[in-house]
Design a protein around this nucleic acid. Sequence first.
DNA 1: GTGAAAGCGCTAACAG
DNA 2: CTGTTAGCGCTTTCAC
Lengths: 369, 369
Amino acid sequence: MSRSRQPRRQATLASIAAELKISRTTVSNAYNRPDQLSADLRDRVFEVAKRRGYAGPDPMARSLRTRKAGAVGVLLTEALSYSFRDPAAMAFLSGLSEACESAGQGLLLIPAGPGRADEEAAQVVHRASVDGFVVYSVPPGDPYLAAVLERHLPVVACDQPREIESAPVVGIDDRRAMRDLAAHLISLGHREIGMLCMRLGRDRHDGVVDVTDLGAEHFHVQRERILGVQDAMRQGGLDPAGLTVVERFTHTSDDGYSAAAQISAVAPRITALMCTTDVLALGALRWAQEAGLDVPGHLSITGFDGIDEALREGLTTVRQPQKDKGRRTGELLLAAPSHTGVPAVETLDTQLWFGKTSGPVESAEWYAE
Amino acid sequence: MSRSRQPRRQATLASIAAELKISRTTVSNAYNRPDQLSADLRDRVFEVAKRRGYAGPDPMARSLRTRKAGAVGVLLTEALSYSFRDPAAMAFLSGLSEACESAGQGLLLIPAGPGRADEEAAQVVHRASVDGFVVYSVPPGDPYLAAVLERHLPVVACDQPREIESAPVVGIDDRRAMRDLAAHLISLGHREIGMLCMRLGRDRHDGVVDVTDLGAEHFHVQRERILGVQDAMRQGGLDPAGLTVVERFTHTSDDGYSAAAQISAVAPRITALMCTTDVLALGALRWAQEAGLDVPGHLSITGFDGIDEALREGLTTVRQPQKDKGRRTGELLLAAPSHTGVPAVETLDTQLWFGKTSGPVESAEWYAE
DNA sequence: GTGAAAGCGCTAACAG
DNA sequence: CTGTTAGCGCTTTCAC
């Protein structure tokens, strides 16, 4: 016997009002403007509501009427199922959720996986009941992003180039941070530098990257980090074209492992392996250990992000305030839309973090003057 | 000069129809039933829509009319900002999002943080535009959970006791898994066992737990895991009351570290430290290393979950299919609500995973017969 | 304090 | 293929 004897038809504001022989307005007020009716009547309303299994005004009807969804849409780079395994993305969401939580706003994750035709992708976005969007590190030309822009709702981006006109952007100076880290390594005597990066473009590619052809069609962040290293090389008198970069389409520690193995075969003389993310670096570190290499004696390895595990492992990396980025992005979105003309660009600070995986080139006397 | 010259008032289905001098139905059909009008007319509709910045039928109005929100609500144990740092919760979400993604459903994370009065909490849940809820490991008596139940929408729970009447539950047999792991340790000669667990109840408590008083008001999962160890002790001829358990309210690796330090002071004779989660175990491991203990020589340490990092570290643990749990939970929710009377209870398999952090008690000859 | 009226923007029969 | 009709359930002036 089912205990949950539901009414045939869910109760509505009107049916509650009818039962109490009062107007719908009054019932509505009971929920939205307690001061507009007597406490006594209000209690009677709730009592009937409870008995009829009415949990308050229907959210959808309410949203339609008030033109507020009470949620912000989040567009992430990757399929959700992957994103949840990406520590950096999670730290971002953590900060974002803080902002939303304190504003009582929900977070609607857009199911923006690959393998959806453009039209379908647009539909998924067009049908999201949200008051605005947060866009996190989405590649140029992404159909979901295009659809977001079509909604004409407030948008705030993070880790995104300024391509989104009139949308505030939160981020860091990826290029400068990476340049500084590379400059440090070069000052330590490194002359042959290798890099591991995650996917640069929308299409699958695993392997060596042509560093002389890094167009804007690439993922902004990855591209900037590579350019940063090249900046440092140039400044240090090295040939930026001599940089070897190996790309992985997916982004796991295992990818870092295999990419490290690959780059060591392709460019065996490198003494420094700079990874564009900590996840890759952690995998590379594991490879180096298993390959019997001394880190940093034989090979310096660096990361980027400053995820917990990397810090615990003592990885040399760039710490970036992921959580703050998320929080700030949320705050910007939730704040009254500033019609002050030019949208904000907020660049947060990063910090070079010297762990135990980087050091001077061993037997680097050759290079000494 | 602002490039986004928005129309004073957003375009609507009706205004598009008016401009084209056709009926609203036809415009609606252009979006929802392409086969109901000529391709030519459809294109004209889209053209006008594009020019007017109309991104398709308003999601809220659409939801009201169709009585479908196109999203499932997710209620997590903790504040969102914390949950995003919990690998097990993320693996669950990852699986859940897979199910939702392939059904084109969004995931609406309910901002169910602490520090909201009960009435406010109810409101947050009552106002969520969703077609159903997923409830993940929420403590008994939680006001958000109560509010979810009041909505009379489909609900599927995971890692939850059967308290939610008429809702399917997905989970594992925590108690048996832990019993088996404990039995293994006991067979290895361990007689003094300690445990580290995460929060057992809604109130803050850090420190030693009274294991003779584990009531139903506690978190289901944590409680079951402790009871499992006690089962094994009983079976092994040990006194279950002799189990020392240290609890931590928050759940980070650092908590594991400090809890391990604490238990070693309180119960210095333990030779096995069983943690109810990998996160805690990883912290305990770190403490043991820094304390100069040999693991497993001096102390065996075990975890629970099978998160990536734990497996990489070679932790002895129980692997549970977190992602599958999420996926299955989503599938159950998205499937046509089975009115077959008794709600499903799905218990997924776990696997004992023997790493290098557990072993026989050293100099255990004393115990040999 | 309470109620009547007027939609929010859309979809789903159904009839042409 | 296209249009007419009838609401979905609610909030919000504005009077009473």
